[in-house]
């Protein structure tokens, strides 16, 4: 796209641009392009007089393409949309394209939430999210936004939502964002309430099956431990399961450091099992997770 210059455009001839006041010794000054400097000068001018018009909508689009992190341009844009009674579906269509250009921007998601909230329907959003996750399956903003949708439209118990999450975990069993989303769906709508026994059982089995596929996976173990903790089950519930992957009596035959970690926690809970706990921590520090040797040794010192 060729640079747009407003001073040449008769549509903007009634606006007197306000140049940036950057003083004699600015800090972190940027070598702005003429295009950006000029557009910003026109933005200040229209903001100063609270102009809400179609041309302003175009101007905000132009600036957002260069600086999507501008924190008031989004609020201003939303105000303009409201004053013009604009079709918010069109705004979503525009956002779909814009979001793909700015994958790590915060403001754009806030704006999208505001618009979708006003529209009152999540229709089409699942497709958009799928497109975004194709770029990066662990994009934090996208998952956060999905959580907003679930909360706003009460989708905690929506079966399709849980199925979709399972699909994401199946695609990549190490996608921690997907695991977290599962936890959010299953327990997020419940507050402090205890979950059904059957649901807890289902979740434990789900995590265990994933661990059996890939035992050396932080995400699935964290999930398993998290479900146990949230539902106030004793850690020792997991003892037999952990023993399938690690046994301090068979120190050459460990297939998961996380199983060893779990056993260390279980043994730590019993005064009479201190030596076993130390042995598990030792194996972690010296053989199976030396990256974290300092941490395992610290844990060992706590047992002295």
């Amino acid at each position: 796209m060729a640079p747009t210059f407003y001073h040449d455009d008769p549509k903007w001839s009634n606006i007197k641009p306000i140049p940036q006041n950057d003083t004699a010794r600015p800090l972190a000054a940027i070598a702005y392009t003429d295009e950006y400097s000029e557009a910003m000068s026109y933005l200040r001018a229209v903001m100063a007089k609270n102009e809400y018009s179609h041309r302003v909508l175009g101007l905000t689009d132009h600036i957002i393409s260069m600086n999507p992190a501008h924190y008031t341009i989004w609020l201003y844009r939303f105000k303009v949309l409201s004053e013009l009674h604009a079709d918010l579906r069109e705004e979503i269509a525009w956002l779909n394209v814009t979001a793909l250009k700015h994958l790590k921007n915060y403001q754009i998601w806030h704006h999208r939430q505001t618009v979708i909230d006003k529209l009152g329907s999540p229709e089409g959003e699942a497709d958009f999210i799928a497109t975004m996750l194709q770029q990066d399956t662990k994009n934090y903003h996208v998952w956060s936004y999905r959580q907003f949708l679930v909360q706003r439209f009460g989708l905690f118990d929506d079966e399709g939502e849980l199925k979709w999450t399972e699909g994401m975990i199946e695609e990549d069993v190490r996608n921690n964002s997907a695991w977290n989303h599962r936890y959010f769906l299953v327990f997020g709508g419940k507050g402090e309430q205890t979950a059904d026994k059957a649901i807890v059982e289902r979740e434990l089995n789900y995590a265990k099956a994933a661990i059996k596929k890939a035992p050396q996976n932080q995400s699935s173990w964290n999930y398993l431990r998290g479900v146990v903790r949230r539902n106030k089950l004793p850690t020792s519930t997991l003892k037999d399961f952990a023993l399938e992957f690690a046994d301090i009596e068979k120190p050459d035959d460990v297939t998961s450091s996380y199983a060893l970690d779990t056993l260390a926690d279980i043994y730590t809970e019993y005064q009479s099992k201190r030596e076993e706990a130390k042995k598990a921590l030792d194996l972690l520090a010296t053989r199976y997770d030396p990256v974290r040797a300092h941490y395992w040794n610290y844990r060992k010192r706590l047992l002295e």
Binding site: D172, K213, A214, Q216, T255, S256, S257, Y288
Partner: peptide
């Protein structure tokens, strides 16, 4: 990319692959 890779391999779990016995499952 661990997409569709459902088990432990040298490519999927660096943090311990050199240490734990992989490929048992």
């Amino acid at each position: 990319d661990t997409l569709n890779d459902e088990t432990d391999s040298a490519a999927t779990c660096h943090d311990a692959h050199a240490f734990v016995k992989l490929g048992s499952h």
